[in-house]
């Protein structure tokens, strides 16, 4: 049986793991390759590496770091942040990423998703969607790390991204991100009805119970950062909580 995945996320800025609340007030949380190895040893099913100050650092430096992580860990590595064209995807896959996530560039130029999926296969193209809840309860896709509203409905954008070749969606509920208020279960319920690719839920985990809740709602994987960086829970503790609810875990 296909297992649900627990994915620690490394938000990387200036070559260091950082964590903020709703993408601001960043704190230093250590060296990314060491963190990737530590989480892989704890039983992480995948590592997500998000370069959150894309453009401010050298691309070659990032590739070298990704290569360092990719050759040392033995679980899958998803890399994203600042991926703006197909050569970026090719570079990251060549450096050892198993999947590459595309966010704002896909919103700006949806054809990029198809271009990358045709060249590299849908299984390695993740479209990351940052969503913010509007006053009417609908979710809006936002770009540029939450700084730029797009006016697009997040669920409609998810459907289009899948039609264009996204093999997986990594969906962050911005209002929840870093707040440890639990995952936005209503958003994931809508997405699960709307698309037939795996969905990774992100944003809001305060502990193992929140992760078990969102996996029970039907997403394929849960991504979390703060609870692991702050040592609130280990990956294995999260998995135990999920197993206690009869969720299939590795």
């Amino acid at each position: 049986m296909l297992r649900r995945r627990i994915i620690p996320c490394l938000d990387v800025s200036g070559g260091r793991v950082v964590k903020g609340v709703e993408f601001v007030n960043l704190r230093d949380c250590g060296e990314p390759v060491d963190a990737a190895l530590r989480y892989a040893e704890q039983g992480a099913d995948e590592i997500c590496w998000l370069n959150i100050t894309a453009g401010d650092e050298s691309w070659q430096g990032l590739l070298a770091q990704v290569e360092g992580a990719g050759t040392r860990i033995d679980v899958p590595l998803t890399v994203g942040g600042g991926v703006s064209d197909e050569p970026h995807v090719r570079d990251l896959l060549g450096a050892g990423a198993d999947k590459v996530s595309i966010n704002s560039a896909a919103l700006d130029r949806p054809g990029l998703v198809a271009e990358c999926a045709e060249r590299h296969g849908s299984q390695c193209i993740v479209v990351a969607i940052d969503a913010r809840r509007g006053p009417d309860g609908a979710w809006e896709a936002v770009a540029a790390g939450g700084r730029r509203p797009t006016g697009r409905d997040a669920v409609a954008w998810a459907v289009e991204a899948v039609e264009r070749g996204a093999g997986e969606l990594l969906v962050t509920a911005m209002d929840q991100d870093g707040t440890q208020a639990g995952y936005a279960l209503d958003l994931y319920a809508r997405l699960l009805d709307a698309v037939d690719v795996p969905i990774i839920a992100s944003g809001g985990a305060s502990g193992p119970a929140d992760i078990a809740d969102v996996l029970e709602a039907g997403v394929s994987a849960a991504l979390a950062a703060s609870i692991f960086h702050d040592a609130i829970s280990t990956v294995e503790e999260v998995k135990d909580a999920c197993r206690a609810r009869s969720l299939p875990m590795r």
């Binding site: 099913d45 093999g167 394929s220």
Partner: peptide
């Protein structure tokens, strides 16, 4: 399969 790609850990 309910969802494709088949992504993740399996027996």
């Amino acid at each position: 399969a309910a969802r494709l790609p088949h992504l993740g850990w399996n027996d």
